[in-house]
């Protein structure tokens, strides 16, 4: 299994960690190198939200009316009028379509310091959330002096959002560890873990992790992450024979082009190779 070669042929460099959730067998490729997480940071945010719901510190059914918000191309960010929605339905939009406006409402309720405290408690010290979506976008504006989207390679090289030392970050291994906690009912109560698994199973994008498993009887759950040159997805693949595997794939493309279907698909291809390897 030559993952480096597979990534290179798709025009990216990639890192990967895959683990059999029951046996603990794993496949690693640069799995401990820090990576900027882009929207994969919404995964620890979701877990922290679920734990506060368990603790009774927030009510997931509370309805919130959102007026001003971070504009975007997805979810509430794309809508024009006031939106009233429960916190847990915003969590759904945050995971299924990566809605930034919803993520920031939840980040405001949860508090990034509590996300990091939870990560400390799990022993995931390489994973940090230092910005919400609006904060990340602000760094991009400051670093580039341009409006989104940014495609100039020289400007991209300066973006703090793409530097794990200065942005939200994790490693492939810590990302699959968090998924393992959610799948084993250890990240929060079994009820909240089941809810998180449901949301991750509602992931709409079929072009990354899911594309590697084109089978009606294989379930793929996941959370994508996207920034210029950065494409990632972390999720769990469940086979009809009961096998279940957490996989995290982070890639950086050589080209700043925003549309690179092969770079998206290689996330599925690499994940499939790793899962095939784990299945013997």
């Amino acid at each position: 299994m030559n993952l480096e070669e597979v990534f290179r042929r798709a025009g990216v460099v990639g890192s990967l960690h895959a683990v059999d959730l029951d046996s603990g067998a794993e496949v690693s490729h640069l799995a401990d190198e820090p990576v900027p997480t882009a929207s994969v940071f919404k995964l620890p945010l979701l877990a922290a939200f679920a734990r506060l719901a368990d603790a009774g510190e927030l009510d997931p059914r509370e309805r919130v009316t959102v007026k001003e918000r971070l504009p975007g191309d997805l979810g509430m960010g794309a809508m024009l009028d006031d939106v009233t929605m429960s916190l847990r339905d915003m969590a759904y939009l945050m995971i299924a379509v990566s809605d930034n406006a919803s993520a920031d409402v939840l980040a405001g309720r949860v508090g990034l310091e509590r996300v990091n405290a939870m990560l400390d408690g799990f022993g995931l010290s390489a994973t940090r959330v230092v910005h919400n979506c609006a904060g990340l976008l602000a760094t991009v504006r400051e670093d580039s002096g341009e409006e989104w989207p940014v495609v100039d390679p020289e400007i991209l090289a300066k973006l703090r959002a793409l530097d794990p030392a200065q942005s939200n970050r994790s490693t492939p291994r810590e990302t699959t560890a968090l998924l393992g906690l959610i799948w084993r009912d250890e990240a929060a109560s079994p009820e909240q873990c089941a809810w998180m698994r449901r949301l991750l199973g509602l992931q709409v994008w079929p072009h990354r992790l899911s594309s590697g498993f084109p089978y009606d009887d294989v379930a793929v759950s996941g959370k994508t992450g996207t920034l210029p040159t950065l494409r990632a997805e972390a999720g769990v693949v469940e086979y009809p024979d009961g096998g279940r595997y957490a996989v995290a794939v982070f890639t950086r493309a050589f080209s700043p082009a925003l549309n690179q279907p092969r770079a998206d698909a290689v996330i599925g291809t690499a994940a499939r190779m790793a899962v095939d390897h784990l299945r013997g």
Binding site: W205, D216, D217, P240
Partner: peptide, 8 residues
């Protein structure tokens, strides 16, 4: 036969 749903 199982069918696992995917939103897409």
């Amino acid at each position: 036969r199982q069918v696992r749903r995917r939103p897409a």
